[in-house]
Write a protein that binds this DNA or RNA. Structure first.
Length: 840
DNA sequence: GAGGAAGCCATTTTT
DNA sequence: TGGCTTCCTC
């Protein structure tokens, strides 16, 4: 019966196959005999390759779409074409995008062309689409349909809990690492049991395996899943219930995937599963823009596409419609040095355009000043015809945004920083959201723990321990214990406080069930009834700035909730005009209940990032290069083009990572349409330390004739930068480098630096040299000064005993030491470690 | 149990 | 550098 609606025969409805009228009023013949590709208005303006892609039929198709080659256009036209010309039921198309915002844009664009029926197309990220499926069938994998989704912060809390239970200290195995490791495992579809097997004799992996297992149990007990589970559990569901898989295989006649180069293994498996029946797979990607391997994205997915999907076709989109010839040439010169790539040659009919501006500043302050001044200048000249929103400032790490802020603010330039902390991740917001979560899902222990004492209501650690113990004993969830608090004599001392908390939640639940007020107003009630608002208001006297922003954020959440409700209602209303598609709406009949809206809202909160917000104001955008993927700007400033920062210090260790950094550089450069500025510094204060940095290789690789240099050359000028040899003789090389740096500091003060001088040091590895103004460890009696140690020295450590220094890798004015403790090799930062030198 | 002060530590990118 | 935890006092 699952198949009833999407049986084999419904793609063409009788009487409709010859003419479809689009929202724009145009009609076009689609019957097989007289279909004329050349004159189809839908395909107008596409180049031959794009056209080929849009109307491709009969096999899987890979579109290698270079930067700026119009791939979004191809995808939206493809969907329109399928619906209008091939009469495919829009509910049978699944289109995967990389961000929610891209999904929204795609929906809107398709709707513009084919009308509201476009709403029925499944468009979204892997996560949001798989979540939609999981909700339908949660009970098959042991979840209730109302399961909640943990964000990063919740995950950390649960992980900490698991570590405690397993008796593993976060000193030896940092939380970050564990979190990443588990996430990676899930993206590779490695479940706890298998992970444990793989860990074998590796002690740390064994520990992680134990934590992983415990963590997963906690999630299940809590009826919640994390981000990665959304994918992994969908695969699990499909494996476990072939009939459900068969339904979706049948249903999705067409599967489109954007940004295929950034899919991970789990996503690859999902694609393979879902496309297996109809084989109408349409993927678009650019291996040169694969920049998410740290998140488990596997470049091989796109490189091996032809092997994985037998009989597939490949179309290359190599004409770039975005950038000037100069910018494109620079991009090509950077990316052409990568080995692992599917060769493409981007070209453009565009003009040569302006030269790329390169500026080398003294330090980060001057760099920011330069950028701000240039922007001011650009904006003030009307012939430039650009405004704030046409300008993007891109950087490798979020920390670089800070310097720019004040410089921009001083000049009255409106800007917006993307990324960093997500709006929904702010403390005050998460608190309110946790209330909503607990109200809609009383079994959500994680939400309860967050808010039971927020704002403070006298329920402390002792009480929570006892509650936890009771819950374990009674095999139930915490709110249940709280509701029956009088049954637990050991908790009588806290009974009153707990009771008032239970009453609060129950009252709010009742208001929800009465269903008499609007959602936005309901959220407002939650903020005030919970006391969260009053708590911040009380802080106004003490911390006026902080409290004010928090209150503003709460208000913003309320208006966000109002807006959300409006949009949701509208969307459902539109969809309900197509009763035969109503199946997807599940039990959503209008008007929606407060409970339903809350659930939908919680989903959005879990899946939407900062980037997904609509941008209204005319502001300069500041973001990481990662966030900028898929965007374009008239003018781009790429700042922080220094070795050790971009490419990052850790990427310098491996060739593979350098290739990824290079792709990142390629993405950054190709965001620019007309103007590109690249800036670097000589020294930079970052994380409290000053580093002296060379110009990034990505900047020096751009051919000279494309670049105009200001404030210092990209080449040379680095006589003070140097490196080390880590084997014999390292100490001497190091000392000389250090001495030269001393000289640098003197010269610097005297204003000598900048002239080209100095002899080339031979025999030294060409690597960025980093110095500090002092050694942080001195005087504290702990840690080691890396100047005073050498390979072969003996050291002792509180936990690991005595060991021998195997390797010293200088890093950020410090050094990473590799130490062998009787066979166990550990790495430490010299100044941070609890190491003591032992004389032998 | 709450609140403040002092030390601790980590610094890539995020759906 | 600064965010976060831990410890200490009330």
């Amino acid at each position: 019966m699952l198949f009833a609606k999407f049986g084999q025969s419904d793609s063409v409805r009788p009487g409709q196959e010859t003419s479809v009228v689009s929202s724009t009023g145009e009609s076009f013949s689609t019957s097989a005999n007289d279909y004329d590709v050349e004159h189809d208005p839908l395909l107008k303006g596409l180049n031959p390759e794009q056209k080929k892609a849009v109307i491709h039929e009969g096999s899987p198709l890979l579109i290698l779409a270079g930067a700026g080659s119009g791939k979004t256009r191809v995808i939206t036209k493809r969907i329109s074409w399928l619906v209008q010309r091939k009469n495919v039921n829009p509910g049978r198309i699944l289109a995967i995008t990389f961000t929610n915002k891209a999904a929204q844009e795609m929906k809107d664009r398709v709707a513009n062309r084919i009308g509201l029926i476009a709403r029925a197309v499944w468009v979204g990220t892997f996560h949001s689409m798989m979540l939609r499926i999981l909700r339908q069938h949660a009970e098959y994998i042991g979840y209730e349909r109302s399961f909640s989704i943990l964000d990063t912060d919740d995950q950390r809390r649960v992980l900490k809990e698991s570590m405690k239970k397993e008796g593993i200290s976060d000193k030896t195995t940092p939380l970050r690492h564990i979190h990443q490791e588990i996430s990676k495992a899930k993206n590779k579809l490695i479940y706890p049991e298998e992970y444990a097997q793989m860990a074998d004799k590796d002690l740390q992996k064994k520990q992680i395996a134990a934590i992983y297992k415990n963590y997963q149990q906690q999630l299940e007990q809590n009826n919640s899943m994390d981000f990665d589970d959304i994918l992994a559990l969908t695969v699990f569901l499909f494996e476990k219930e072939p009939e459900i898989l068969a339904y979706y295989q049948e249903r999705f006649l067409h599967l489109l995937v954007d940004e295929y180069q950034d899919t991970n293994y789990a996503q690859y498996v999902l694609v393979k599963m879902l496309a297996a029946k109809h084989k109408n797979l349409f993927v678009v990607g650019d291996d040169d823009q694969s920049i998410y391997s740290f998140r488990g994205a596997n470049l091989m997915n796109i490189l091996d596409f032809e092997k994985d999907f037998q009989g597939c076709r490949v179309i290359r989109l190599e004409q770039n419609y975005r950038s000037t010839r100069t910018i494109l040439a620079a991009a090509n010169s950077i990316i052409s040095q990568n080995k692992q790539r599917n060769h493409k040659n981007l070209w453009t009919q565009g003009t040569e355009g302006k030269k790329i501006n390169f500026y080398r500043a003294l330090d980060q302050g001057e760099e920011a000043l330069y950028v701000a001044n240039q922007i001011k200048h650009l904006l003030s000249k009307s012939e430039n015809n650009i405004s704030g929103k046409d300008i993007g400032i891109l950087y490798r790490v979020n920390a670089l945004a800070r310097n720019l802020e004040s410089a921009l603010r001083d000049r009255g330039i409106v800007y917006r920083i993307y990324g960093g902390t997500r709006f929904y991740d702010r403390k005050e917001i998460r608190d309110i959201v946790s209330y909503l979560r607990l109200i809609s899902q009383p079994t959500d222990d994680i939400a309860l723990l967050r808010i039971i004492n927020t704002p403070r209501r006298g329920i402390g650690a002792t009480t929570i321990e006892l509650l936890n113990a009771a819950a374990v004993r009674e095999q139930t969830y915490l709110f249940d214990i709280c509701s029956r608090i009088e049954e637990f004599s050991e908790l009588s001392f806290a009974a009153n406080n707990i009771l008032s908390f239970v009453r609060l939640i129950n009252d709010l639940r009742q208001i929800m069930d009465k269903n008499e007020i609007e959602f936005g107003y309901y959220v407002k009630q939650v903020t005030s009834a919970s006391g969260l608002r009053a708590e911040q208001e009380a802080q106004l006297g003490k911390l006026p700035l902080e409290a004010t922003t928090r209150i503003q954020n709460m208000d913003e959440l309320i208006s966000d909730a109002m807006e959300f409700e409006g949009r949701l209602q509208e969307e459902i209303e539109e969809l309900s005009q197509f009763p035969d598609l109503m199946e997807d709406l599940d039990n959503l009949t209008l008007p929606l209940t407060l409970e339903q809206i809350t659930e939908a809202y919680l989903e959005r909160v879990a899946l939407y990032s900062d980037l997904d917000q609509e941008d209204q104001e005319d502001a300069v955008s500041l973001m990481t290069i990662h966030s900028a993927k898929g965007l374009e700007f008239d003018t781009v400033f790429l700042i922080g083009a220094n070795e050790g920062l971009f490419p990052s210090e850790q990427a310098l260790q491996s060739a593979g990572e350098i290739e990824e950094e290079r792709r990142l550089a390629y993405v950054a450069v190709t965001r620019a349409k007309k103007r590109l500025y690249i800036t670097a510094t000589r020294r930079r204060l970052l994380y409290g330390q000053t580093m002296y940095q060379k110009v990034s290789r990505f900047a020096t690789e751009i051919p000279d004739d494309l670049v105009e240099e200001e404030g210092g050359s990209r080449h040379g000028d680095d006589e003070y930068s140097s490196g080390f040899q880590s084997d014999f003789g390292w100490r001497r090389s190091f000392n000389s480098a250090y001495e030269r740096d001393d000289r640098f500091q003197r010269d610097f003060a005297a204003g000598v630096v900048g002239s080209r001088a100095g002899t080339k040091e031979s025999g030294l590895k060409d690597k960025a040299f980093v110095a500090t103004t002092g050694f942080t460890t001195q005087g504290k009696g702990r840690g080691l000064n890396y100047k005073e140690i050498a390979v072969g020295d003996k050291v002792s450590h509180e936990q690991h005993g005595t060991g021998e220094i195997m390797k010293i890798t200088p890093f950020s004015g410090d050094a990473i030491l590799e130490i062998n403790f009787h066979g166990l090799v550990k790495r430490f930062k010299a100044s941070m470690s609890l190491l003591k030198r032992v004389e032998d």
